[in-house]
Design a protein around this nucleic acid. Sequence first.
RNA 1: GCGUCUGUAGCUCAGUGGAUAGAGCAUCUGCCUUCUAAGCAGAGGGUCACAAGUUCGAGUCUUGUCAGACGCGCCA
Length: 667
Amino acid sequence: MRDILINYITDLINKNYSLNINNLILEVPENISFGDFALPCFQFSKILKKSPNIISLDIKSIIDNEKKDFIDEVNNLGPYLNFKINKEFFFKNLFEEISNKKENYGRKKSNGKSVMIEFSSPNTNKPQHLGHIRTNLLGDSISNIFEANGYKAIRVNLLNDRGIHICKAMVAWLKFGNGEEPSENLKGDYLVGKYYVLFEKEAKKEKDEFLSKHLYENIFILDAKKFESKKNYLKNKAYAIFGKNEVTKSDCLKRKDFKYLHDIFNKVKENFSEKDLILIDLNSFEKYEKEKFIDEEVMENSKILQEAREMLAKWEEGDKEVIEVWKKLNSWVIEGFNKTYESLGIKFDKYYYESETYKLGKKYVEEGLKKGICYKKDDGSVWIKLPEKEFGGDKLLLRKDGTSVYMTQDIGTSFLKYQDFKMDKSIYVVGSEQDYHFKVLFKILELLGLENAKECYHLSYGMISLPEGRMKSREGKIVEADDLIKEMQEKAKEEILLRGREFNNEELENISKTVGLGALKYYILQFSPRTEFIFDPKASIDFNGKTGPYLQYTHARICTLLNTLNIELKDIDFKLLNTESDYKLLRLLEQYPYIVEKALLQYNTSYITEYIYNLASEFNSFYSKNDNRIKEMEYEQKKAKLALCYMVKIIIKNSLSLLGIQAPEKM
RNA sequence: GCGUCUGUAGCUCAGUGGAUAGAGCAUCUGCCUUCUAAGCAGAGGGUCACAAGUUCGAGUCUUGUCAGACGCGCCA
């Protein structure tokens, strides 16, 4: 309908004003009494050099002269020209399209383009948590939205199965595990996670011991001012070491080099008794810098951490025993992950494993060297040249021993992915803490000549925190994905039983799962990706109001209605749809394809969640009106109303499917 | 210190330079003998952090201030 009107107005304007407009803006007025569509005339005022109010009047008079029969009324209201469409035509047009296309309504034909969406990408040392749920759901939903817009979507998961994190779990499992294996009650990812936590506990113990022996309050590295004020106190301590060479915070930061701090630290150590040691100016150092420094000190002195480091080295050397344990634990975790994905209803087209890709990328760096994009420092390390202002300077790509860093491996993986699929676009669904990493990565890919580098996009999402603050896996302040899914589904079952409807056991199980999952998915996807939201367990599990179950319930209601009355929707008299709530629904239904488009342009699922809620809400209002008791209507009237219900049903189902939510027929 | 992002109702969040800034929750008032009450109808609740600027028009764009989150490592 909208297209018909846009074409009509465009032709009219181009003809009468001798223009060549092809991107006409047509809006839907907020106030329904204004009409079905609005033409904001601001868009022409610059070209025509007239005020929008006058243009609006001009166009109105032109249209009045040769008005099409599908337009009932054209009214100008200030700068807006409002159109009232012939409702019978409008309804008929829409019903034909929806009932022909059904589940394909709102889906575009293939555009021959493909897009890769990488999401989830967990570390294989612990079960997935709420943060993973967000990337899982977001990645899957964005894939669906791409598909609806005519793309071929390739869902990819890059498993971080290599590194110190998994070695930590391996050390603890070997030390304390007694060969424990996953069981019915303990999924593989939970089991490995258990040992990872055990490792952290052990490391914490060693850290505390170390810290208790070393008084970290007595040594200061100060900026000049503070140094002056504490001089007396420090006279017999650090001061002696620093002597005239005062070391300041900015010195250290400039070098971005904790090694430098450690060197000083060691110097202090050599010259003073153990008791007096220690670095730290509690005020002038940022908290994280302090922690990082202490962590490194602890690392040097912690047995169990050393063991993990040694294990990583052995893994890299290909030590048979280590590899075997690694394979075993990894396979357990991945098996556990697959169950999580299954319960979320998510599938991947391709898994990449970091253990297989972490060495890639070197050859692209070599090419960069040849092209002069990269350069080698005296110590043998390789760097890429990047503008200081925009990227904060050059970036290391190969260590002096020739090994890859995170960036290098991501470069390699990006090229590999392109070789495998030759996709037009590539989306990375990764948390916003990696904004800088991806900004740099995409620039490097461009410099190194990856074909689709300009079509790479980091879909950055905000961190989820709990009402009591940020989630911390080390402190057990965490919401596990499996637990949350299960909890939602149990709650759904309770709610169903509460209502006393008649379901057999199988139905009960299926519907609980569908509704619980629907609640979770809708809850997470209603936020814009960027938003860092606070996860409130109480609100998330509420099934009333703007929630997944409300939408599913609306769908089930319509299904019951259609099934109970069971009338063939043929030869419908659309003149009979003439109430305000009929029109309101019509307007919403018409918008659906444009919403799907908008969601893609902004990579934002909240346009979809917002839209379905509005549609369902409008329908429930329609449904509850006393004069709208469809059952009691005359046959023709009933048929027309059911046709409207049918359209709503299809669109609720289609739009929910974009979010990965199923629409049950009963609940 | 430098960089990125965020600041909208009591809480949690939507909001494409455009018409009177919205929703859910919470609070209060009504509505089930009826096609599913997981529902509907209604009320109250706002200095869109603050200040200036851009223009026909700013919650939306620019700059500054304040507050918060994240990032800035030869970790991934």
